[in-house]
Amino acid sequence: MTAPRYCPACLSGLTSASSTLLRSTTTRTTTIPSAITHQIRTATQSQNALKYRRKDIPASQKKKKSRSTFLQPDLKNAIQFSLVDAMRYIRASEVGRPPTSSKYELHLRLRTAKNGAVVRNRLRLPHPVKTDLRICVIAPPDSAQAKAAIASGAVLVGEESVFTAVKEGRVEFDRCLCHTDSLVALQKANLGRVLGPRGLMPSVKTNTVVRDVGSAVREMAGASEYRERFGVVRMAIGQLGMGAEELQRNIRAFVDSVKRDMAGLSDQTAKDLHEVVLSSTNGPGLSLDGRFASEDGLGSKELGVA
């Protein structure tokens, strides 16, 4: 065996740093400078260490067992805020933004398994965030149902006219409802490819196939949807101009609704509320501690308007 190709200068630098990787090669080379003849004591050479070294674990066991629930850290050391304090910080960081574009957001972290059923529902907040939803209703035109839908604020009502418009790519609505009797026509029209990716396809599972279209539109106009993604339920909870009391009512309604949903799913998967985080479009995310105002902080009066 001849000496390998690397230069001795590199080696001297490496061996003096008590390399463990290169030991096998350094012992083979005969050109070690005298400067590094000191004793190298490392774990692999000592008899004791060899004795206590872990036996090779079979490859099947080596793989770390993956976690089946989302990791939720202990909130003991977390900094948490009362609602008014959090709002003060958020308003400061949203200062000067157009008041219609900034929203408060609420994030609910859940203690839940990674697989299984997820929380998903619609909710009408006491103080709606967004009111200019464009709703499309698929129902036979000129029917009583269609008239009711228009009366309660639907933008687009019809069957064939809607289908052709959607097929041409004109999707000029944000929500889509379907009357129960029109479901067959809808499925024949083959719109799943267009509406599906946008989440607009009506289906029984999402409660968008209804019998009473009129009241459903009214219900939906001020309502917003939420669903659990990666163990977190997020939703816009208020406009930035809202007062602390209004926001508190909205938060309470949302949390109660999610808790009800979780109770409904309890026979399938156990879920539990872990953390409530208030954030905004441009602001920091602040964990709430459930109080309305802290003792030394501001009251809701001093908070004023945004």
Partner: peptide
């Protein structure tokens, strides 16, 4: 001024309306 100073000004004077 808006990006830096106004944020702190708003924090310490939450009742003062600041618009841009």
């Amino acid at each position: 001024f808006w990006r830096h100073e106004l944020v702190r000004l708003k924090y310490h004077n939450p009742a003062v309306s600041m618009t841009i």
